[in-house]
Amino acid sequence: MTALLSLRGVTAFYGAIQALKGVDLDVNEGEIVTLIGANGAGKSTLMMTICGNPRARDGQILYDGADISALPTHLIMRRAIAQSPEGRRIFPRMSVYENLLMGAHGRSAAEAEETMEQVFALFPRMKERATQRGGTLSGGEQQMLAIGRALMSRPRLLLLDEPSLGLAPLVVRQIFSAIRDLNRSTGLTVLLVEQNAFQALRLAHRGYVLVNGAITMAGTGPDLLARPEIRAAYLEGGH
């Protein structure tokens, strides 16, 4: 398998504070890879750095063989990478339909309609709520909308930042199973950042553990789940 996305020694700073301290990470085509870690470990920063905001100071971010670390954000996002950002960030005053259309920015209306049907098939709830305002949706529906909006650009690589944040366990399971279906049926590559380590590792093919801006462990999902240090740090005491 070839790596669709690989990070080599990536560092990133917020002012003088170093948030990423040389991260190496690979995401192969067709894989679900999860990145777990505690609050403030740099998970979201890593996600944002891939998108070019903040920019990587050192190291390379290779996507499909090309270094994208110097590109402006909007050009990175046009290279078949899509992100469902942390905290969902849907457009609250726009309808569900308009929210989805925003995801297809820069693509033709016909293409957008076609992709929207696929999103509606994945999340039938979105079709029911199409004329409703984004802000009136429940948390779980907003997360579906955020993922659906990201899918509207027909990405090869989907970056998901904490899709389980603030959602009921049942809803989390629904969303994770939708991600699994999507990966199986279309071969979509997914990089998933999660605090909910247990669910994320069960879903993912492989996982990385980020501590203080550096990768400390890597392995397959079941392998990481079985390790005692992971159990102690991220799994015990509920999830």
Binding site: C51, N53, P72, T73, H74, L75, I76, M77, R78, A82, Q83, S84, P85, R89, I90, F91, P92, R93, M94, M102, G103, H105, G106, R149, A150, S153
Partner: peptide
């Protein structure tokens, strides 16, 4: 509505 979300959707802000 949300500038960060716009960026993440590939809109040239």
């Amino acid at each position: 509505e949300d500038e960060v979300a716009c960026r993440s959707l590939g809109i040239n802000v």
